[in-house]
Structures are given as C-alpha cells and as structure tokens.
C-alpha cells in the first residue's frame, strides 16, 4: 500500500497515484495493483478510496439531476434538448404536459419551441440511449427571465459548497435567485443589474480558483469589498 501523492495535489492523466489494495473512486483506473489518474484534477483519498476531483470535464447525465438546457428540435411527440451532455436529451410530451398528448389536436411548438431554455430533471439515462427529461415537478419548466452562466460541470459541487454553504452565501450577499443545473449551466435572476454583474463575476471566480484553498472566504471577501466600494 503506497501513495505517490498528497491530498489536493494536482495530478494529470497517466500519473501513478497509488499501489496496492485501494478502492477506486472517480477519474481513476487500475492496471494490476497500480492506480492511475485519467483526468487533470486534485488527488483525493477518503478512507481507502482513491479518486481525482476533475478540473476539466464534461457532463454525464445522472437520473435525478436538475439540468438547464436549450430546445434544439421538435419531433413527433417529443423535443430534443441540448443539455451539454455527449448526447441530446429527449423530453417527451407526456413528461412535459403531465397528460396524454394528442398529436392530431395539439401543436408541440405551442408549449415549447426551438430556442427556448428549460429547467428539467433527468428521468432516465443508461449511456446506451439518449437521456430522458421530465418537467413534471415544481420548479421545472420554461425559463422566462434571467441570465445564463456556464461553468465546467465538475465545478458545480464547488459552487454549491459543503452543505450548500457557498450557494446560500451568494444568495444572501447578492439577494439574487440562483438555479444550478448539474450540467454546469447556472441561471441567475437579480433585481438590480449591479448585483447580477457581481454575482456572475463571483461565479466565474469560483470556476477559475476552485482548486485553491479558502474559496468561500475569498468569494465572501470579494463580494463585501465590491459592495463596500459601490456604497
């Protein structure tokens, strides 16, 4: 049992992380008893589980995830939605309307059309088929106002923070409404444009500096200082 890195060390694909009887976490793989990194990220060890917290990644859908996507096509009884995953997601009319859909009587484009942005939940995905979305839950549906910020999906947990500490701090300090899609698309709704500017700047800072310790304090400091200057 040997470890070749310390916690939070920066690793790149192909780095030999550990040798021996460890469990495999995210972004690692094993050859014999050697464990290697598959992505650029931070080395992590919890109990005996070796993993890498990715700094660059793409979104892989998981059932239950709330995502924000754009409608890109209208099919016979469904919409195709770009949720920044490897595959286009499908939103069936039943899952959007909550009742059976009659193609002979209704027009899908009356509800959602190409170019609309929606907040949806991933209903099913098994990576051999396209992900299925649903809107049949409160809080889901068409986005009518706000601003979209895109970040790397692997940094969503940092934006939320431990037990939601980061996101509640952002909401409290700026007074804005924030919806985070697990696919790295963030919707912010603010009353004042200055708050919006500040919040977007803070989110971009979180994405850029997520691998440096003391992130929450740094962001809180930045917001307070900026608000102090504005007053």
């Amino acid at each position: 049992m040997t470890l070749f890195f310390n916690k939070r060390d920066l690793v790149v694909p192909g780095d030999l992380l550990a040798e021996g009887d460890y469990e495999l976490g995210e972004n690692v793989y094993r050859i014999g008893d050697k464990i290697y990194a598959t992505r650029v990220g931070l080395f992590e060890l919890k109990d005996s589980k070796v993993s890498v917290i990715a700094l660059n990644s793409f979104y892989v859908p998981k059932p239950g995830d709330v995502v924000i996507g754009d409608v890109v096509d209208i099919g016979v009884g469904s919409w195709a939605v770009d949720i920044r995953a490897p595959r286009l997601a499908i939103l069936r009319a039943v899952d959007a309307l909550g009742k059976p859909f009659r193609p002979d009587k209704q027009e899908l484009s009356r509800f959602l059309t190409v170019g609309d942005t929606i907040i949806a939940k991933v209903k099913a995905y098994d990576r051999t088929r396209s992900p299925l979305l649903t809107l049949s839950e409160p809080g889901l549906g068409k986005v009518t106002s706000g601003r979209i910020v895109r970040i790397t999906p692997s940094k969503v947990p940092r934006l939320i923070g431990r037990k939601g500490s980061m996101i509640s701090m952002l909401k409290r300090e700026t007074g804005c409404k924030i919806v985070i899609g697990m696919n790295g698309v963030v919707l912010v709704r603010c009353k004042r444009p200055e708050d919006e500017e500040l919040l977007v700047e803070a989110i971009e800072k979180i994405e850029r500096e997520s691998h440096v310790e003391g992130l929450t304090d740094r962001i809180a400091m930045m917001i307070r200082r900026r608000k102090g200057l504005g007053a």
Partner: peptide, 11 residues
C-alpha cells in the same frame, strides 16, 4: 484531449 476533460489512460 486531456484539456477537454476526456478520460485518458496516459498522455
């Protein structure tokens, strides 16, 4: 490829 976040065995 590594920069795109695509998992790799090695560079």
């Amino acid at each position: 490829l590594a920069d795109a976040g695509i998992p790799m065995r090695d560079l």
